[in-house]
Design a protein around this nucleic acid. Structure first.
Lengths: 220, 220, 220, 220
DNA sequence: AATGAATGAGTTTTCATTCAT
DNA sequence: GATGAATGAAAACTCATTCAT
């Protein structure tokens, strides 16, 4: 948790610090990400950082938390309208993928979490998100089963895990791949994003759903 | 690539070096893995390492390569007998998952690849394996389409990518999760593996196939 | 010297600051004692400290001064009744030792003075106390000589220095040692002091006086 | 303990490092003594220091150990000829004092030991010397009692502790004081030592012995 | 070919002190 | 007078890489 000092900072400065830190943690794995770098680029004194955060890990977990929250709130908007299972899932996938492509840094910050020493501590936070997401999918599946939208003879927990693995970075990576671009190149050249039209994203998501749908869907 | 020097080494010494390095790279993320540690545990001089490999990255990519090859050759054994698409894929998934559980280190080495700085260089190698696997799946799918085993209206490249994301660590992780065990705990307590009977693995794979099958399978 | 500001402070606050500082300087050697710690525990702003004292050293010397004064005034009470040299010295030793055991912090503050860098400045103050004490003993000795209580053929200054080295922490340390306790453990567990009865202290002091009085030499 | 690497160093270099380190630890209290300073003055790389010693504390304890050993071996030479208690003690005092004046740094290194954090650890080593010395004196006293040289009615442990407090820095400090010189000035101006003739040292030691031998009490 | 000491840039973190509000 | 954020020099320590033997 940041210290109160951090929240007393002028909006502009706080944002600058977070932006720079986000960028650093997205670019380098945790152990290579450098506080010295961050403060230099943010134009603040090294000691100041320690008046805002306990230590490097504290800063990182905060960034990670922010990333998770932003994605959550972005994706959650799709849940307002109640529809059937397949439509909801399709919307979630599309939103998640769009978010990953619009904020490629955030995804990288999460990916770099693997590197944090004292593994458990961080992993905990990192997988809390995974855990929650999987549980949400499981819930969706069970509801779908009750409504008769989903076949009854599938293991909901396992299916939810599968869904999670599809919703993560997977589709975004696939889309970049079809452009012959790696995530790193994409991070460096933001203008590439213009080649990824909403239609293109929609198409891929629909394709995936097509495959899954006739799999999950109850057979008449 | 290791220098010729490395291959002139007595078998026993070469193996020792690789074993220790594998363990180190499985235990720590790339940037935390320590050459000093490796040479100390392998009982060789630090300078020698640089007569075998160009640098840390060179050693790592070689280890990574070995890991990939081992998995490949393990999994490839399932391809001998020609059967239909679904049976083949099921066997591949089962074999991959068994391998991941029997050689958890190798999987970790791959997972830790994400951490390598200097971006593309490493990713390249890491995704060469990915690339090859996906292409293989794509080939399988197209063959299946021709034989009429697979629906014709799916994007084979996309589907292959999906298959890849299912075959990776995913199922192994899921199995460990059902035991309430993290990969780190599993690495530390190898005896846990006894709880993962072949039947249990078979069950999970069958479940996944059940889901996929009626999705991919051509409708009559 | 504290600035006037400090003396304008409400009694209660002033005392709190001094108590906390005393504790810190008793616990850690000068260079490890932390102003940040002190202000945090005293509940005042860091800047305020610099409105009370010039700097860390200024605060420390003041604390040191207080410690010396307190001990002085405690010990001086023994000087009211005029008696012979030996009785007076015995009383001083006993009082000094009791004080050291009752206020172990103060002794530690003095002991930690050795640590102050920038040499002379601090030593000066530290040894002002030493100087004064030795001079006082010298005076006592000379008086004793005149009265015929003390042999005339000893160097009073040297003897006074010897007396000083006996009166310091020495006896208190010895007493703790006989309990198998270090000064640090004693500081942490104040209840130990109950094992050090006045009789026990008296005994040790008497023993020392016995030695000094008639010397080591066997009596014929 | 230094690592083997250190002992493989050319004599000249090893000595230079120890000299510089000794000087640093004699000049500054442990926490202010700076490794960076030491390596700079010794003209070696910072990393090298860590190939010779585990860490700062390791270097310090080694220096401390050396200091103690040197003093020990210097003083022990006086023990060859068997004589009576008083003569032996007088010789030990004289030798100890001479040593302190000839190697003022070593005494300072010991004095600065108080500052080492994780107190116990270091204190242990520091007071092992104290412990041994006191026990040696105790032994001397008991022997003297058996031979009838020493009165039987004194507490030998307490007396030994007293003797220890006299043999330490005390006399050296006194001698410097009579020159109006502090230890720090003495360390900085080694030529002062010429004013401290052996006769002067002998005189002071004899004076002290006179006092101890027959006591303070006037003879009837 | 093997060794292992040497290197030094780089890391995170601490803390007394200053200064604008 | 009080505040507490800002500062930055300095600390201990790490480690991949080089190079003389």
């Amino acid at each position: 948790m940041p210290k109160p000092t951090f929240f007393n900072l002028p909006e502009e400065k706080r944002k600058r610090i977070l932006d720079v830190a986000m960028d650093e943690f997205a670019t380098y794995p945790y152990s290579k990400a450098s506080l010295s770098n961050i403060v230099a680029r943010a134009g603040i004194a090294k000691g100041s950082m320690y008046q805002y955060f306990d230590d490097k890990k504290d800063l990182y977990t905060y960034i990670l938390d922010l990333a998770a929250q932003e994605k959550m709130s972005y994706v959650k908007r799709e849940l307002d309208q109640k529809t059937d299972f397949f439509t909801t899932f399709e919307r979630l996938m599309a939103a998640g993928t769009r978010f990953n492509l619009e904020h490629p840094q955030l995804g990288q910050v999460v990916a770099n979490a693997l590197d944090v020493p004292g593994e458990g501590l961080l992993h905990e936070l990192y997988s809390k998100g995974r855990e929650m997401t999987i549980e949400f999918f499981e819930h969706m599946l069970k509801e779908g089963m009750e409504k008769g939208e989903i076949r009854g003879n599938i293991d909901p927990r396992l299916a939810a895990t599968l869904m999670y693995s599809l919703v993560g970075q997977g589709l975004a990576d696939y889309l970049l791949e079809t452009l012959g671009v790696t995530m790193h190149e994409y991070l460096a050249n933001p203008e590439i994003s213009q080649k990824l039209t909403p239609e293109r994203i929609e198409y891929v998501v629909t394709e995936v759903m097509k495959i899954l749908r006739s799999g999950f869907e109850a057979q008449k």
